[in-house]
């Protein structure tokens, strides 16, 4: 057994070279550029603009996670427990977005939501509104775009959990006279809690690092952390700040992951 351990060396080398080394470089940058010390960190954590970007990111990611997981729950329910026709249609709706690039999707939403976009035109034609609703270049658009991207990812952990639900348990609850509502809230939902937790983790971690969608749909009006880091690298070069921000982001995501995993572990008991 031990003799074969060297076989995994290529993987370790690859990961070390492509992840660990660059990360150590970023760590170094964050403590040294432009001056050695904790200056970059204290600036990041005290600058009101940066702080507001951090809070905005957290807020948007929490909302996006909630919206995506809730929407994905309903979609998965249709996919796993719907009639055959509903199932195949839902499956298509889950799969198709995977084949469309994130850029096309963001532009798609812009043409839907912009001031002279489809939705505003329809609403005007129907006489429901007089002036266009502002639906792009704000948090609303970012949340919609991000959720749309992330919903399919939330579907899979949920589907696994739903498929593992023993049908007889639901039959038993029904036989005892429990209403459909009670069966859903008190039996089905808790029995799929592990899937909800998995989906939440996945979506939240993905959402924190989002760049393209918020950049396009937020239109520079609601800047998220990833966009801020981009700015500090390419627009106003302050690599030390970007590095410090990256380290903070990574620690935050790591911390949240550990917390949720621990909670998840307890639930699985």
């Amino acid at each position: 057994m031990r003799a074969y351990l060297f076989l995994i060396c290529p993987v370790l080398l690859f990961l070390g070279g492509s992840y660990l080394l660059p990360f150590l470089g970023i760590m170094q940058l964050s403590f040294t550029d432009p001056e050695p010390g904790l200056g970059q960190y204290s600036h990041v954590l005290s600058d009101p603009l940066t702080l507001s970007a951090i809070w905005r990111t957290l807020r948007i990611c929490v909302i996006v996670t909630a919206v995506s997981v809730a929407a994905a729950y309903i979609i998965t329910l249709l996919w796993v427990r719907g009639r055959p026709l509903v199932r195949s249609l839902t499956e298509l709706c889950i799969m198709i977005p995977f084949w469309i690039s994130v850029l096309s999707r963001a532009f798609g939403w812009i043409s839907m939501l912009s001031n002279r976009g489809l939705l505003n035109t329809w609403l005007k034609d129907l006489g429901l509104i007089e002036t266009s609703l502002q639906m792009t270049r704000n948090e609303f658009a970012v949340i919609i775009g991000m959720s749309h991207y992330l919903i399919p990812f939330a579907v899979f952990p949920l589907a696994t959990a739903m498929r593992n639900v023993d049908e007889r348990v639901l039959t038993a609850a029904d036989g005892m006279g429990a209403s459909r509502l009670r069966i859903f809230w008190q039996v089905f939902l808790p029995m799929t809690a592990s899937g909800i937790m998995g989906a939440t983790l996945l979506v939240f971690v993905f959402s924190v690092g989002f760049f393209v969608t918020p950049a396009l749909l937020g239109g520079g009006q609601s800047v998220l952390i990833a966009e801020l880091i981009y700015l500090w690298i390419f627009q106003i070069p302050q690599w030390g700040m970007a590095a410090a921000m990256s380290v903070i982001l990574m620690l935050a995501v790591g911390g949240i992951l550990v917390l949720l995993m621990r909670r998840y572990g307890e639930m699985a008991k």
């Binding site: 023993d166 007889r168 039959t171 609850a173 036989g175 005892m176 006279g177 008190q186 029995m191």
Partner: peptide, 26 residues
Amino acid sequence: FGMVFQGYALFPHLTVAENIAFPLKV
């Protein structure tokens, strides 16, 4: 009627007491 299912069909997320209480709560 009371029913004991093959494989028991207990509510996995509820304790013994909560399982027994379920039909009574209903």
